[in-house]
C-alpha cells in the first residue's frame, strides 16, 4: 500500500472518510463467524482443555490445516527428528569403534547438569524454499539443554514457537505466551520415537549409540588445525575445525540411500562437548537444506526456564495433549492428511 498518496485530493479525502466510517460502523461479526467457524476440526480431538487455570477463553473454531504446516513441522522437528533418523537402526560394529567411543564420551559429558545454549539454523536450498511459503524458509532456534532437560525458542519467518521438557519430564509446547500445551506428563505413555527425539534435543546422544546408522560410514578425524574439506551435496563443503577438536563425519555407504539425510558432521571439543552438528537433508532425493547446531555458550540458567509456566503470562490457558496409543497412531496420521487441502 502506498500510504503517502492517501487522500491527496479533496475528493479522495471524502471517499476515504466515507469508507473509513462505513468500515468502523459496520458490524462484521456475523461475517467473521461465518468465515472462521465452519471448518473441519483439526486439533479438537487431540487437544483437550484441562486446566483453563486462569482463563475463561475457549475458542472452538478450527481451521483447515494448511499443508505448509507439514513444512513448518518438518523444520521445527528437524533438530530432533533428523538426528533420530540419523542414528536409528544402525548396528554398532567394530569398524565404528572410534566413533562410538567419541560419541559415548559426548553422551557422558552431556548428561551433566550444565546449561548449554545452541543456535540451530535451518537453511533451505533455493530449490526447496518457496518464497511465498514462510514455513519452507529459513528457521532459527535457540536451544538450551541441561542433562535431559531442554527448551527451544523457534522462529520460522514471522512465526514463533517455544517447546521443551522440564526437570520432571513434562514435555510441553507453547504457541504464545497466553497458551501452553502439555504434551506428556511423567508416567504418561510416550511413543518411543518421541522419547528419543527428546533425548536428541537434549543433546545427550545416549543409548542411541547402540543403534548407530546402518547405512552410514562414520569417520573420526582427530584433533587438528585448519579446514576439513568433504564431499557435501549442497551448501557448505568446507568446515573450519577449531584447534584440538575432533570431527565425526557420517557419509552414506555406496549404494545406500536415506530418506532424509545425505550426510552429517559433528564437532566435539576436548571436554567431550558437542560444539557443532551439521545435517545435510534431502526430500524426495532432492536437496532440502542444511540444519546446523552450534554451541553458543555454557551457563547456569537454572531449571525454571525449562518449565512451561516460565514462558506463559499469568492467566494463560494450558491444554493437555492426549496421546494416542501406538495402534491409534496410524489413525491420527490419516486424520491429519485428510484435512490438509
Amino acid at each position: 500500500m502506498d500510504n503517502e498518496k492517501q487522500h491527496e485530493q479533496p475528493v479522495d479525502r471524502l471517499v476515504g472518510e466515507y469508507l473509513e466510517r462505513l468500515a468502523d460502523e459496520l458490524d462484521a461479526s456475523s461475517l467473521i463467524s461465518r468465515i472462521c467457524d465452519p471448518v473441519q476440526p483439526v486439533v479438537a480431538d487431540e487437544i483437550v482443555e484441562e486446566q483453563a487455570s486462569l482463563s475463561t477463553e475457549k475458542k472452538t473454531s478450527s481451521w483447515t490445516l494448511p499443508f505448509s504446516l507439514n513444512a513448518a513441522a518438518w523444520t521445527l522437528s528437524t533438530a530432533a527428528a533428523l538426528v533420530v533418523a540419523f542414528f536409528w537402526g544402525r548396528s554398532f560394529d567394530l569398524s565404528s569403534a572410534d566413533a562410538a567411543t567419541v560419541l559415548h564420551e559426548v553422551s557422558l559429558a552431556h548428561s551433566q547438569p550444565i546449561d548449554r545454549q545452541y543456535l540451530v539454523n535451518f537453511t533451505p536450498t533455493p530449490e526447496f524454499w518457496k518464497k511465498n511459503r514462510p514455513f519452507t524458509g529459513p528457521a532459527q532456534t535457540i536451544l538450551w539443554t541441561r542433562g535431559d532437560q531442554f527448551w527451544g525458542d523457534a522462529k520460522l519467518g514471522s512465526y514463533q514457537l517455544v517447546y521443551g521438557r522440564d526437570d520432571e519430564g513434562l514435555l510441553w509446547l507453547s504457541t504464545s505466551s497466553s497458551k501452553g500445551i502439555e504434551l506428556a506428563r511423567p508416567g504418561d505413555p510416550l511413543p518411543e520415537e518421541i522419547a528419543v527425539a527428546c533425548v536428541i534435543n537434549s543433546m545427550s546422544i545416549p543409548t542411541l549409540v547402540d543403534e548407530v546408522l546402518k547405512d552410514f560410514d562414520l569417520t573420526v578425524i582427530g584433533p587438528s588445525n585448519g579446514h576439513y574439506h568433504f564431499d557435501a551435496p549442497f551448501g557448505q563443503s568446507s568446515f573450519q575445525q577449531s584447534p584440538g577438536n575432533s570431527l565425526v563425519h557420517a557419509k552414506l555407504k555406496l549404494g545406500h540411500h536415506h530418506a532424509l539425510i545425505h550426510s552429517a558432521l559433528m564437532e566435539i571439543d576436548p571436554s567431550d562437548t558437542l560444539v557443532c552438528l551439521i545435517l545435510w537433508t534431502v526430500s524426495d532425493g532432492e536437496p532440502r537444506g542444511t540444519t546446523s547446531f552450534n554451541l553458543v555458550k555454557t551457563a547456569n540458567i537454572g531449571e525454571e526456564q525449562y518449565r512451561l509456566p516460565f514462558h506463559l503470562d499469568e492467566g494463560a490457558t494450558i491444554k493437555k495433549h492426549q496421546y494416542k496409543t501406538s495402534s491409534q497412531v496410524g489413525e491420527a496420521s490419516e486424520t491429519d492428511r485428510e484435512v490438509a487441502p
Binding site: C36, V42, W63, Y159, L161, T175, E193, L260, S333
Partner: peptide, 27 residues
C-alpha cells in the same frame, strides 16, 4: 525400524501445536 517413522510422529506433535497458533493468527 523405518527411520521415517519417528519423523512423522514428531511432525504430528508439532503440527497440532502450530495449528493452534495458526488458528489464532488467521482469526
Amino acid at each position: 525400524m523405518d527411520p521415517i517413522v519417528p519423523f512423522e510422529l514428531s511432525e504430528n506433535l508439532w503440527i497440532q501445536s502450530i495449528a493452534l497458533y495458526m488458528k489464532d493468527e488467521q482469526t
